[in-house]
C-alpha cells in the first residue's frame, strides 16, 4: 500500500471493534434503545506517522479515542498497542501502558483541575509513575512547558488554569502530555475551543513536537482542511463506520465514498482569493 520508505512497524491495531451504548429505559419505552457508536471499526497506525480520524460530531471518533485510551470498555474486537491486547490490562501492565499513551484534550479548561497549579498538574504524572528525583522532576516540567511554548517555564509554575488564556491552557495540557515522553499521543479536536489564529499556532506546535520527539499521533478532527495540513493518512468516519481511509492526498483528491465527497463539497470555497500549500 505504502510506496514511500516509511517505517512500517504497526504501533496501534484496532481490529473489528464494536461498541454500543444502552439508552436508559424510561417509563414509556419498555426495551432499552441500543445505539451503535462504533460498528466493527478497524484501522492500523504505523509508528511515527500522523493518522487523522475525520468525522462529524456523534460519528464515534471520540468514542474510539476513549477506547484506545482504555477509558471505556468495548464489546467485541481487539485493540493492540505494540502487539499487546489492551482489553485485559491491569495493575502494573496498565500503568506501563498509561505511561506510553497520552491525550491532548478537546477542552483545555475543563481538562485541567481548577485547584491544581500548573506545576502540580505536570508533577502528577511524574509522581504517579515515580519518575526522577525532585530536581529532575522540576527539570522535566520546565522542559515540557518550554517545548509546549510556555516560556519562561518558571513563570507558569504557580499559575492556575483560570489565570491562563485559552491558548496557554491548551499549551499547558500539551505540556502535561509531554512529561511522560509518550510514544503515542491522541489529540482529540485540540483546537476546537480556540480562536483561529491561536489554533494555527497550536497545529504548528504539534507538528514540531511530532517531528522532534518522533511521537505517533492520532489526530481527531471534524475539519478536513486541518487534517490535510497535519496528517499523513486519514480515515473518514461516519455514524460509527469507517467509510474511507488512505493517504491524505489520495482521499481528498480522489474520494471514493459519497460521504467524503459531500464533506469536501461543504468546505468553504475561495474563488476570489489565492491559496498556497502551507510549509
Amino acid at each position: 500500500m505504502e510506496t514511500k520508505s516509511r517505517p512500517t512497524e504497526t504501533i496501534l491495531n484496532v481490529d473489528q471493534v464494536h461498541k454500543t451504548y444502552q439508552d436508559v429505559r424510561s417509563l414509556f419505552r419498555k426495551s432499552a434503545l441500543t445505539i451503535t457508536a462504533l460498528n466493527r471499526v478497524s484501522l492500523e497506525i504505523k509508528r511515527g506517522e500522523v493518522f487523522g480520524l475525520v468525522g462529524a460530531s456523534g460519528s464515534g471518533k471520540t468514542t474510539l479515542a476513549r477506547l484506545v485510551l482504555k477509558l471505556e470498555e468495548f464489546e467485541a474486537g481487539s485493540i493492540r498497542f505494540n502487539e499487546t491486547e489492551i482489553r485485559n490490562l491491569k495493575g502494573k501492565d496498565l500503568k506501563a501502558f498509561r505511561r506510553k499513551v497520552q491525550l491532548i484534550p478537546q477542552d483545555p479548561y475543563q481538562s485541567l483541575n481548577p485547584y491544581l497549579s500548573i506545576h502540580d498538574t505536570l508533577l502528577e504524572p511524574l509522581s504517579i509513575h515515580k519518575i526522577g528525583s525532585r530536581d529532575t522532576r522540576t527539570k522535566i516540567i520546565s522542559q515540557s512547558l518550554e517545548a509546549a511554548g510556555l516560556n519562561p517555564a518558571e513563570d507558569f509554575f504557580t499559575r492556575y488554569p483560570h489565570q491562563l488564556s485559552g491558548g496557554q491552557r491548551q499549551r499547558a495540557a500539551i505540556a502535561r502530555a509531554l512529561v511522560l515522553k509518550p510514544e503515542f499521543m491522541i489529540a482529540d479536536e485540540p483546537t476546537s475551543m480556540l480562536d483561529a489564529s491561536i489554533s494555527f499556532n497550536i497545529f504548528r506546535l504539534l507538528i514540531k513536537i511530532q517531528k522532534s520527539q518522533k511521537v505517533t499521533f492520532l489526530f481527531i478532527t471534524h475539519d478536513l482542511a486541518a487534517a490535510r495540513f497535519f496528517c499523513d493518512r486519514i480515515a473518514v468516519i461516519y455514524q460509527g463506520d469507517i467509510v474511507e481511509s488512505g493517504t491524505t492526498e489520495k482521499v481528498i483528491q480522489d474520494p471514493k465514498s459519497e460521504y467524503t465527497r459531500a464533506l469536501i463539497r461543504a468546505q468553504p470555497k475561495f474563488s476570489f482569493a489565492k491559496t498556497t500549500r502551507p510549509t
Binding site: 483561529a196 494555527f200 499556532n201 495540513f229 482569493a273 489565492k274
Partner: peptide
C-alpha cells in the same frame, strides 16, 4: 493578515 494567514482551507493557506 494574521487572521488570514492562520486560516486553513482545503487548498492551503491564503496567499495575499
Amino acid at each position: 493578515k494574521s487572521l488570514l494567514s492562520s486560516y486553513l482551507t482545503l487548498d492551503g493557506v491564503f496567499d495575499f
